[in-house]
């Protein structure tokens, strides 16, 4: 018979500290959401027309564009982050520290600066003073594809990708650091080339890291605002994603509308991240009670 005293045992200081930390931060986040919900509900009860934004086609387009650009940016980020993360984790080469530092620049720089730099890169590079007479990168892309980048949906993806990929790279490097490099060595002695060993042995082990990297990149892209504002602009009904829509609503004095869009972003983020976690978490239900590797 189980002793009931086990259930009455008070938590130790350590368990208390863990619980307090989780509780404090989770409560803070929930309070932020609750405040938004309360604000919108109060505005709706006061005057339902203030929150009618939800029914607008413009907002629906904004949701679609946000979901599409975030997803494309996340996929591109993972595609680039896997080889870079692996390279930084496994290879020691001259200039590695410099490359490592360069890869942190998008994380460190203020997002507005990233947007400004993208704008200059695409529209003023290579500089005219060089006299190359080949036009800017924007011109070259236009002459080849017939499409502009700046102030279009492509600019949203480029801006999101530039920042999100840096976070994805960090996640993938940490993932590969945790995978025993001898796995590849054993696979190579069994006849696999380094590339084959990577795809057969390392990549399957990094599955959760790839998912985490993609999720982080997606979430980061969703929250991206500064580079999009500068590089893609905020033309309503054209290239406005949800984060810039919030900015537009605030600028026009429609705080209620801005909060409605903010809540929509929270719901979109929660649904997407939870769906990804549920779909990819089915293999994680393993016994973690022992010390088995």
């Amino acid at each position: 018979m189980r002793r009931s005293s086990n259930r009455l045992k008070l938590p130790s200081w350590f368990e208390g500290w863990l619980g307090l930390s989780i509780g404090t931060y989770v409560v803070l986040i929930l309070l932020l959401i609750a405040a938004d919900v309360w604000f919108v509900a109060a505005a709706w009860m006061d005057d339902p027309s203030k929150t009618q934004l939800l029914s607008s086609d413009v907002l629906l387009d904004s949701v679609k564009l946000t979901f599409l650009t975030c997803t494309i940016s996340a996929i591109l980020s993972v595609i680039i982050a896997v080889p870079i993360g692996y390279c930084l984790s496994r290879y020691r080469f001259w200039g590695r520290s410099v490359i490592d530092a360069i890869l942190d620049i998008p994380v460190i720089l203020p997002p507005l600066v990233i947007g400004l730099s993208l704008l200059i890169l695409f529209n003023n590079f290579p500089p005219k003073q060089l006299g190359w007479d080949i036009g800017s990168i924007e011109d070259m892309i236009y002459s080849v594809t017939g499409r502009h980048v700046t102030n279009t949906e492509l600019a949203v993806i480029v801006a999101q990708f530039t920042v999100a990929a840096a976070f994805a790279v960090r996640t993938m490097k940490a993932t590969f650091d945790q995978i025993d490099p001898r796995s590849e060595k054993v696979a190579m002695t069994l006849g696999a080339t380094r590339g084959r060993a990577f795809f057969d042995v390392v990549l399957p082990q990094s599955y959760k890291g790839v998912v985490a990297s993609g999720t982080l990149a997606w979430a980061r892209a969703l929250g991206e605002f500064g580079p999009i504002l500068v590089f893609a602009g905020t033309t309503q009904g054209k290239v406005d994603v949800l984060s810039t829509s919030v900015y537009l609503e605030i600028n026009t004095g429609n705080i209620e509308g801005a909060v409605v869009i903010s809540l929509l972003m929270i719901v979109l983020a929660m649904v997407t991240i939870l769906t990804v976690r549920i779909l990819t978490d089915k293999d994680s239900k393993v016994d973690k009670g022992g010390m088995s590797r």
Binding site: K185, V186, T189, L190, G191, A192, T193, R194, R196
Partner: peptide, 9 residues
């Protein structure tokens, strides 16, 4: 390279 040596480690 290791993969050409036909060893088992």
């Amino acid at each position: 390279t290791p993969h050409l040596r036909n060893v088992g480690l």
